[in-house]
């Protein structure tokens, strides 16, 4: 019994099943299938039909055969840039889930240091920035030809709006973040000094949860070489202090940014 004759018989069964055996008798099973379902105990048309359907389904599923050989699809051009390391991939997931304020810096550092975006990040990045021409353009720069190729195959990844021109400045500059003037002066301080002031202020309660957005922005833009010492200082906040929770959150931000920059250095 060939795959074609089994398929033909199955189509006959589907037709009878649609109408019901009250209206049409089941077809006679062909060849070996007849032996499989031969049973005088099955007297009614519906019982004979069910037996055929079960046997035919089992045979079709167990007899799974490959479909036709298909043409290869055109592959994208090779990108000579090295792919970013797996730790950077994990970091991007952490950043987008917890510290989106760092995402622009992640992308600009990657592009600036000559890395290529890991392909497993591309679908998520292209979906995430369908409506943001600046960030989407950065993704396409970081992805190279693979980005254009992927979008060409999957309409779901196309941008929501028609092409918008993006200036080179907008592409390469980090967006400005609002930081209170009394905190902004710390942007250029050494890590130990900035860390000590922040830790003392948090411990004393003069910086609290209401200041969190400003503190997040500060740490997202503070000198990169200050991050590790800053994190150490914030880590020393008294666990009994009311600001300990805030300090812990800021330690994670500082550590995340420090590691992000290390992973994307070359």
């Amino acid at each position: 019994m060939t795959t074609e004759s089994m398929q033909e018989h199955w189509q006959q069964l589907v037709t009878v099943a649609l109408l019901g055996t009250d209206r049409r008798d089941p077809p006679n099973p062909p060849g070996p299938l007849a032996d499989l379902v031969a049973d005088t105990a099955r007297s009614s048309p519906s019982e004979r039909m069910l037996a055929q359907v079960a046997a035919c389904t089992a045979v079709r599923r167990a007899g799974v055969v490959p479909g036709p050989v298909l043409d290869e699809i055109v592959v994208p051009d090779t990108d000579a840039r090295p792919m970013c390391v797996p730790a950077a991939v994990e970091r991007w997931h952490h950043i987008t889930a917890s510290w989106p304020v760092l995402e622009d810096e992640w992308m600009l550092t990657l592009i600036g240091n000559g890395w290529r975006i890991a392909p497993e990040l591309l679908p998520a990045m292209l979906l995430r920035h369908r409506s943001d021409p600046v960030r989407r353009t950065r993704v396409m720069v970081g992805a190279g030809d693979a980005g254009r190729w992927l979008v060409g195959h999957l309409a779901d990844l196309e941008p929501r709006h028609s092409a918008v021109s993006v200036t080179p400045e907008a592409l390469s500059e980090l967006p400005e973040l609002p930081i209170a003037p009394e905190l902004a002066e710390m942007l250029d301080w050494p890590g130990a000094e900035a860390g000590a002031v922040l830790a003392q202020s948090i411990e004393a309660g003069s910086l609290g949860q209401s200041h969190k957005p400003m503190l997040v922005n500060l740490i997202a833009r503070v000198r990169p070489d200050a991050l590790r010492v800053l994190a150490d200082a914030l880590n020393s906040v008294d666990p009994m202090a009311t600001g300990h929770g805030l300090a812990t959150v800021l330690v994670d931000l500082a550590t995340t940014r420090h590691r992000m920059l290390e992973e994307l250095m070359r």
Binding site: V65, P66, G67, P68, V69, L70, E72, I73, V74, V75, P76, P119, E120, L122, P123, L127, A146, W149, L150, H153, L154, D156, L157
Partner: peptide, 28 residues
């Protein structure tokens, strides 16, 4: 070269993240 296996079609309204990832990572 020996044949093909269809990928489960999630329907026209669903974005198939599996196919997108497979396409991106394999590069075809």
């Amino acid at each position: 070269s020996t044949g093909s296996m269809p990928i489960l079609d999630l329907g026209t309204r669903a974005f198939d993240a599996g196919v997108a990832m497979l396409l991106a990572v394999s590069g075809g």
